[in-house]
């Protein structure tokens, strides 16, 4: 059985595509899947940094395309998880070094050996994005509850819909601040899914630990008790087919007074 090729994309830059790729990939591998991650942001590669693999890269995607190495040689194994591999983007070339056909070819080859091929797309809707989606059958759209990010996500959804190869796509809402949603100063999860009319794959709460994890080159799913890490792990489980409920960010948690009120309000059975 061949693997699933999932492109991770957003339109807008800086909403967390690469962070999401690193964490979903790591979480899938931790759950026992064989995972290959491809960084297609040629010239601006970063996935290697988030994975802490920047010193292990010898060959890149472009080297393979230029037949300087075999595909196996260009795949860098993760430090901890042997079933997780990274195909890094070249830092020196530009986006014209790869064509859509070549990307599709690489994805087709990788899905023979891996259960999941995650393609980290560059920002924008130009050639780099077209390359990234060329070999994919599914898509994950990353957005944040900000107007510009939601607008760009809508554009991406339009392009994905027009693409025959993408069978389904789902949304991940990143950097959600429950307190701001509760005070009606941030678009809620329902607002965003309503506006974009798209299915939700997961919600990632804003978490300062993300910065710490990037500093260390260690995906946040490897940190214990980090909120964002738990959310990414839940996303991985949903991709694997498990039913994991998405927590409710709309209603504020019960306060001390509410709890006391509840004690008096609960009917007592006699």
């Amino acid at each position: 059985m061949s693997g699933r090729v999932i492109v991770i994309t957003s339109g807008k830059g800086g909403v967390g595509k690469t962070t999401s790729t690193a964490n979903i990939g790591t979480a899938l591998a931790k759950n026992g899947a064989r995972v290959a991650m491809i960084d297609t942001d040629i010239g601006l590669r970063n996935l290697d940094l988030l994975m802490g693999l920047e010193n292990r890269i010898v060959y890149t995607l472009v080297d393979y395309i230029q037949e300087k190495c075999k595909l196996q040689q260009a795949l860098v194994k993760d430090k901890k998880i042997p079933t997780l591999s990274l195909l890094a983007a070249a830092q020196t070339s530009d986006k014209t070094a790869v064509t859509a056909e070549q990307m599709k070819d690489i994805c087709d080859k990788l899905k023979e050996d891996f259960d999941y091929v995650l393609v980290d797309s560059p920002a924008g809707i130009e050639q780099g994005f077209q390359n990234a989606i060329a070999g994919a059958n599914e898509a994950i759209i990353i957005t944040t509850p900000e107007m510009s990010a939601v607008r760009d996500a809508d554009r991406i959804i339009g392009l994905l819909e027009a693409n025959e190869n993408i069978a389904n796509y789902k949304l991940v809402l990143n950097r959600v601040r429950p307190k701001m949603i509760q005070s009606n100063d941030m678009l809620s999860v329902n607002d965003v899914t309503d506006i974009l009319s798209v299915k939700l794959l997961g919600v990632i709460p804003e978490d300062e630990n993300i910065i710490v994890s990037t500093n260390k080159g260690e995906p946040i799913v490897n940190m214990e008790n980090a909120r964002a890490g738990l959310a990414y792990n839940n996303i991985a489980r949903r991709i694997l087919g498990e039913e994991v409920p998405i927590p409710d960010f709309e209603t504020p948690p019960p306060t001390f007074v509410d709890r006391i009120k509840n004690i008096f309000l609960t009917p007592v059975k006699i």
Binding site: M147, R151, D154, N184, D185, M186, L187, D191, I195
Partner: peptide
């Protein structure tokens, strides 16, 4: 609420897009 502002503006701009 500023959220409602965002929602209404977004809906309008997306419609034109």
């Amino acid at each position: 609420d500023s959220k409602d502002d965002a929602k209404n503006r977004l809906k309008l701009v997306l419609m034109h897009d």
